[in-house]
């Protein structure tokens, strides 16, 4: 069964540090799973995506630093 988390808070980054500038705009969120919060990337954001605090996201994978990546699916 897929791991699910909920968005505790979020921001859409329009102006990033150089290494991430080409990916803007991208979505960062603090995602809560089992009452444990971690900062995460949420893939699949477009300007048409309506984001709300409390919405569910699905765990995709850990990135190369071990940080969680989620998706809207």
């Amino acid at each position: 069964m897929a791991r699910r988390g909920t968005i505790y808070t979020y921001s859409i980054v329009h102006s990033g540090i150089e290494a991430f500038q080409e990916q803007t705009p991208y979505l960062l969120a603090v995602v809560e799973e089992n009452r444990h919060r971690r900062m995460a990337r949420v893939e699949g954001y477009t300007e048409k995506t309506a984001i709300t605090i409390g919405m569910e996201v699905t765990f995709l994978s850990d990135d190369e630093r071990g940080n969680p990546v989620y998706t809207f699916a």
Binding site: Y10, S11, F20, L28, R41
Partner: peptide, 30 residues
């Protein structure tokens, strides 16, 4: 922005693409 990001966590925050504006923006949304 990169120099300031060093005052956050380089692995758990800046390493994800978080900047100070985005961290405080998350605080604002919450």
């Amino acid at each position: 922005t990169a120099g300031l990001a060093g005052a956050s966590d380089m692995d758990l925050e800046a390493g994800l693409g978080a900047t100070f504006p985005s961290i405080f923006a998350m605080i604002a949304n919450r």
